[in-house]
Design a protein around this nucleic acid. Structure first.
Lengths: 110, 110
DNA sequence: AATCTTTATCGTAATATTGCAATATAATAA
DNA sequence: TTATTATATTGCAATATTACGATAAAGATT
């Protein structure tokens, strides 16, 4: 088929998967790391940092935005991007939850 | 094209993206959550838990295994799966790193 | 207004993913 | 040996993703 059977999973599972999926490309990881490395949010110049053509970068930014991982504000003829802490905290909570469980039960047979 | 330009990114960026990508499907999130919900590792019966056909589940398990997120041990004619804590700790470290940075600089313009 | 700069969208080609029926493999049970 | 059970692999169709050239859109500059 090619389409995920999202209907069969919980909303939370779909949400987590969507955020993880958006981070599942090195260019998008690089964008997040770049946004972190600069003190303020970025107005322009993201395209010059990545080894990809402008339309490709624009597409990656759009996906990060759709997943709620970054926010973009129009600022003159440039656009300011920054990380949306709320969305990433969802993933962080998920991993904290996982680690909690894993530390409690140390009886792994594998 | 369709193929990611992995050569142009750092090994760490590719590694993070690969792990995130493996979690980027609700079925695989569901598998992880199921592995967590049971006290020990799972020998068999993962297929019955998911709303997908056996070959599809097998494929998802393979991807989680390739990404290093789960480990599988042959146990008789079944296979025991459990979560690989080391791999998930890579993602957790990444998000902790992000949150650190974000908390230090609260000067977000967005 | 004409031009420049920045970002988005369209169109398209190459490749990847998702899902499953059919089949294979391998260990166990009869 | 012959089922039976559990998981993997193959092959294929439907869809999604990735990448980029060409072009559009919109504010800034001259």
């Amino acid at each position: 088929m090619g389409a995920s059977k999202t209907d069969h999973f919980t909303e939370k599972q779909n949400q987590l998967a969507a955020i993880a999926k958006a981070l599942g490309h090195p260019a998008r990881v690089a964008i997040i790391e770049y946004l972190l490395s600069v003190d303020s949010c970025i107005c322009g110049d993201i395209v010059n940092v990545l080894p990809l053509a402008q339309p490709t970068v624009s597409q990656h930014l759009k996906e990060l935005k759709n997943a709620g991982i970054i926010k973009g504000n129009i600022e003159g003829n440039a656009i300011c991007y920054c990380i949306n802490e709320q969305t990433l905290s969802i993933l962080q909570a998920f991993f904290a939850h996982i680690n909690n469980h894993l530390q409690i039960k140390k009886s792994n047979c594998c």
